[in-house]
């Protein structure tokens, strides 16, 4: 939507287009298969039959970052992996979102104190939109995180914004 943004003043047509675009985009958030550790199993369980991510439109996990909207960082981030996470994030096309799943990605988790090889939070590497705490978070918690992300997407607009101070 880069070519549409910031061209029009906010008005009735824009808000309707916004509503339509955001409705479409929030209901088809396609995640990247990016399970690192234990949280990946709960992410798989969230995608499986009982908790069903597909009813949110988010069930189409893409293996390649080029086709993904959302990077659910599920699991501990280590220094060795950090470069790859950054590269994968850079390979994702806009608009892209990052959901930090689990205590390890939020702030280091149980490895905070003596984990010499653990990055204390994935927000030191990529910008994060939603944090889902838990160790591991229940699939329902991941669904809540996804719903928060959907709210965030619905709040976006293509209208001209005032320049930030």
């Amino acid at each position: 939507m880069g070519w549409l943004r910031n061209r029009f003043e906010e008005n009735f047509a824009i808000t309707t287009i916004d509503w339509a675009l955001n409705w479409a985009r929030s209901n088809s958030v396609w995640p990247l298969t990016f399970g690192l550790a234990c949280c990946a199993i709960e992410m798989m369980a969230a995608g499986a039959s009982r908790f069903d991510l597909d009813r949110f439109g988010a069930g189409a996990f893409r293996a390649t970052p080029r086709q993904a909207d959302l990077m659910i960082v599920a699991g501990t981030v280590t220094f060795k992996m950090a470069a790859r996470i950054r590269r994968l994030w850079e390979q994702m096309p806009e608009p892209k979102y990052v959901l930090a799943m689990g205590a390890c990605t939020v702030g280091g988790g149980p490895y905070f104190k003596y984990g010499y090889h653990v990055v204390k939070g994935v927000d030191l590497i990529v910008p994060v939109d939603v944090y889902v705490p838990g160790c591991p978070p229940r699939p329902e918690a991941l669904l809540e995180g996804l719903m928060r992300l959907q709210e965030k997407i619905r709040a976006e607009t293509i209208a001209k914004r005032a320049e930030p101070a």
Partner: peptide
Amino acid sequence: LCPDDWVGHPLRKDYVFPTEYHGIPAATGS
């Protein structure tokens, strides 16, 4: 297990925890 350019041998008792690695901060103030 550790990256190829890691400094030190972590399980030694006199190991010094790193403060950063390639620009990513590691020190937590703990």
